[in-house]
């Protein structure tokens, strides 16, 4: 039987100059996704994915690490200019935005808050009894 030759092709990452950083800061975690201008996801990271577990996931430090991780990945796509979209009330919210601005080689073009707020929508869940 003829053996199929396995040839590993080196994946060439498409080069995108400009992108959008989506920061989703929830009460329990901070997730960051970098997309191109059309909204196609390029790379992502989160505090949980970096090994922070439990309540450590929601800390500003974890958010900072996640941003640094995702921006290192994004640089492979040639990203130089970004816009930032933040949503959620989490603890990592401010640190995440600040860290994006502090990374050298990345220029922030705009910032926007896209937190969804209901116009008195569904009833929220009941309060935790702890």
């Amino acid at each position: 039987m003829a053996k199929r030759k396995l040839t590993k092709k080196k994946k060439i990452k498409k080069q995108v100059g400009r992108g959008v950083v989506y920061i989703s800061a929830t009460f329990n975690n901070t997730m960051i996704t970098v997309t191109d201008e059309m909204g196609n996801a390029l790379c992502w990271s989160s505090a949980g994915a970096l090994g922070f577990k439990g309540s450590k996931k929601s800390t500003p430090f974890a958010a900072q690490q996640a941003v640094e991780d995702v921006m290192a990945k994004a640089k492979e796509y040639g990203i130089k200019e970004v816009g930032i979209k933040v949503q959620g009330p989490g603890g990592g919210r401010e640190t995440a935005v600040k860290t994006v601005g502090a990374i050298d080689g990345i220029k922030v073009l705009w910032m926007k808050d896209v937190t969804p707020l209901p116009h008195n929508g569904c009833r929220p869940r009941k309060r935790r009894r702890v």
Binding site: F27, G88, P89, R93, E94, V97, K98, G101, V108, M111, D113, T115, L117, P118, R123, P124, R125, K126, R127, R128
Partner: peptide, 25 residues
Amino acid sequence: AYRKFKRQVDRNLIVVEVRKRRFYE
């Protein structure tokens, strides 16, 4: 620019509103 952005967000009470809506009252 960040300070300007933060001032806008604080003025709109977005985080306060989300925190208020976390649980049913």
